[in-house]
Design a protein around this nucleic acid. Structure first.
Lengths: 107, 107
DNA sequence: TACGAAATACCTATATACCGAACTTTTTAC
DNA sequence: GTAAAAAGTTCGGTATATAGGTATTTCGTA
């Protein structure tokens, strides 16, 4: 019944052992609205609310909003790949970006 | 008169040489609403809209929303890059790995 | 110059984000 | 047990997000 976003919010709230009221206060919301975010079948919160919630949880907005992304940690494979990428010099990094642009055809 | 968010959206849109109409279409919005985001003195867009706009621009939601943040940091750039990579299908991901191997000559 | 098209600015209407307060359920302490 | 307190749920109302229209400006080109 709840959205994936709603489930994530509830999970993180529970992880931090916060009540609806506490999370509401920390994010400048009402507890009824936090409840709605967690439970209603369709929600469309403002960017500002989501941003403040992400702040309290210590996660990125992207993590909260991306339904594909169910876990906080990247896979080990990704971590290795990303470490190599961050260590590239600027020229090679630019080459890689260009290559990514070429194969990642966004319609 | 416009918000900092509005100015950022306009700046990025211009950088990508997009019209209001084009950005609207890419983000599933109306052009009038994109105009309002850029020009109205107060706006409170939904997380979904901002997320889709950030996607088109290739920036993080955090960059768009944080008024302090006027320029993209290294970690913003990396975050977007990594996100794109994780969303590639297996074939393209393999291509990218191969390309990385080619340019990343570990002496 | 003029004319159409494209871009921009603004207006109106509708759906819904979000709140406060009341209500119900669960937990805590005696 | 049972009463109070805390947590969670529901609901009605108001403000506003957003689409879709229309008016105005800019721009290319003959």
């Amino acid at each position: 019944m709840a959205t994936i976003l709603g489930e994530k919010i509830r999970a993180e709230r529970k992880r931090l052992k916060l009540t609806l009221d506490e999370l509401a206060e920390k994010t400048g919301s009402s507890k009824s609205y936090i409840w709605e975010l967690e439970n209603r079948p369709v929600v469309r919160p403002s960017a500002e609310k989501i941003s403040r919630i992400a702040d309290v949880f210590g996660v990125t907005v992207e993590f909260l909003l991306d339904d594909e992304k169910q876990t906080l940690t990247e896979s080990d494979v990704n971590q290795v790949f990303f470490r190599r990428v961050t260590q590239l010099d600027a020229t090679k990094r630019a080459q890689l970006e260009k290559f990514l642009n070429a194969i990642d055809d966004d319609e």
